[in-house]
Design a protein around this nucleic acid. Structure first.
Lengths: 338, 338
DNA sequence: CTGAAAGCGCTTACAG
DNA sequence: CTGAAAGCGCTTACAG
């Protein structure tokens, strides 16, 4: 194991100078720097990050907590975060947080409690009071993408506006019997992503003057394809009270709903319009109308926010507060009702 | 920042004893241990992993390199690896390796070259000679799941046998005009996952005595849903030479192919049988016949192999060599040809 | 069973 | 611009 002492000896300088030449700032004569670098290359020297961390207090490592990796939105965000972090020379330590459970508290109480990361990015997680406190005590920047709970900076789309827009699209086509396939926990946690989307749905329906008995057709399900499929089967099962349009809280749910309609022999869009949220890679193939968002970009933006907090100190983040971009993309799964 | 010296002082022992009581082995009187633990709890002491790593040489951290996170198989493996690693008290550092590119060599030459991880798990990556050498020089265990290249241990399903089984299923139903939707690079890299599946296809077709002009209908595409969709459109486009069955190298490709058939008005399975590989979460919903594998379990097994290498030293791994389990699951997308 | 001392591999004031 | 020294927070022989 080549250590910095070896480099110094080979270059004929002190360890301090070698350190300054290789990594640190500080003044080093150009000629000296070259000699040190040549020596380092010759013996294949690579600094030990642990030793450096110990003295600088910076680990060049950020922790990412994420509830799913196998859901399109989360996977895309994770890829975006990873790329941006690697580009900045940072490692990514992954904590996959399942629902509730003892594993979850272990991540907060043990893994994140150590001094191994410089910052934490929480993706779509609803932090409870205890978790918030446990992270705040660490005095490391905590950046959130979506989700809820107290953090240093949160980037987010305007989920209420997204829900409203999706619903208004259906309303403007002439639908009045619109069901909302909401994410699990939407009613219980109004501050969650799914809660905001539900709120937008309700706002739009109320503003359109839809009678109360048709305004509250809401079914909660997992925000993935099987969730949308079984949820839609339930929603579409009673032929009498069947809605003419469904606003699904995610594209995966929407695709599941389309599949359910096919299974029940209900034509999309002739008999049922379907709109989702996300801009999933599969949306185009299913000709799905959706409100797109850009998770890869969001991940990169979260990393930028972390870097600003890490380097810039206390100054306010650029464009903080402004919601992240979204866009209505109309395809073939929505049309006017018959 | 509470350090071990604070704990020691509070408990009235030396730092050495505090260290032994908290983490290390070594003899400590039961009564002393209790006192130290109480002191640690009182001030919320948590050891600095960096400092410990510096002296022990162990980081309690494993690096995972993976080409995609947003593909079902890879996402499942990653979740399995993550859970197992966390259970063992290890951190997971994620390196998402895109195709070729400069980012890829940066991961090998910079990130993995440092002493930050105790071991590396490579998931479905074909390591070239240079990469193999660069990892071997680190003298850290390198465990692979699928993929190719020189490693300390490789867990893998028998992809050739899987390709053969899937093809034989179609042959036994009576199909003779079978196309293979292969993964990109199957022909060029025979040692890759997609290469082995192609080989199995060819073996089965040859053994069945299928005439050569029908034996080599192979189209390579990305192993995801859009890849399968566009690939299948191409394959099914010429009505004259249209195959009666497709063996897709992954379930996502198979689902894309089903979608393409629907689009072309080709009935599945009446006019086209489709079989995939994976046991994707969506397979059941699409009633897809497939050869299942169990990526979550595979991830956990890879972690077990790493732990064995880390703790056990040189002894051979349990059940090394035996391929990981797979299973043919027949659903509604395959049937006898008309 | 316990403590004093050395040392892991770096970086950073502090002098010069 | 450069070097000697101290120190980051631990663990591990080595004595006792």
């Amino acid at each position: 194991m080549a250590a910095i002492g070896d480099v110094a000896r080979l270059a004929g300088v002190s360890k301090a100078t070698a350190s300054r030449a290789l990594s640190g700032g500080g003044y080093v004569a150009e000629e000296t720097r070259r000699r040190v670098e040549a020596a380092a290359n010759e013996i294949g020297y690579i600094a030990s990050p642990d030793a450096a961390s110990l003295v600088t207090g910076r680990t060049k490592n950020v922790g990412v907590i994420i509830p799913f990796v196998n859901r399109w939105f989360f996977g895309e965000v994770l890829e975006g975060v990873e790329r941006a972090l690697l580009g900045a020379g940072y490692d990514l330590t992954l904590y996959n947080l399942p629902e509730g459970g003892p594993e979850r508290s272990r991540v907060f109480d043990f893994f994140l409690a150590r001094k191994r990361v410089d910052a934490v990015i929480a993706i779509g997680v609803d932090l409870d009071e205890g978790e918030t406190i446990s992270l705040a005590r660490r005095e490391k920047p905590l950046v959130a993408l979506g989700g809820s709970g107290r953090v240093d900076a949160r980037l987010s789309i305007d989920d209420r506006a997204v829900g409203q827009l999706a619903t208004e699209h259906l309303l403007h086509l002439g639908h009045t019997r619109i069901a909302h396939l909401a994410g699990l926990g939407a009613a219980e946690r109004p501050e969650s992503v799914q809660g905001h989307r539900l709120e937008g749905f309700r706002d739009a329906m109320a503003a359109a003057g839809i009678p109360a008995e048709h305004r509250n057709v809401v079914l909660e399900a997992e925000m993935d394809l099987p969730g949308g499929y079984t949820g839609a089967l339930q929603l579409l099962g009673h032929p009498g009270a069947r809605p003419t349009a469904v606003f699904a809280a995610s594209d995966e749910m929407a695709i599941g709903a389309i599949r359910a309609a096919e299974r029940l022999g209900i034509g999309v869009p002739e008999e049922l319009s379907v709109i989702g949220v996300d801009g999933h890679a599969y949306a185009e193939m299913f000709e799905l109308t959706t409100v797109e968002q850009y998770p890869g970009e969001q991940g990169r933006a979260a990393v930028e926010a972390v870097m600003a907090l890490l380097l810039g100190g206390e100054e306010p983040l650029p464009d903080s507060g402004a919601p992240l971009p979204t866009r209505l993309v109309v395809r073939a799964t929505t049309s006017a009702p018959r």
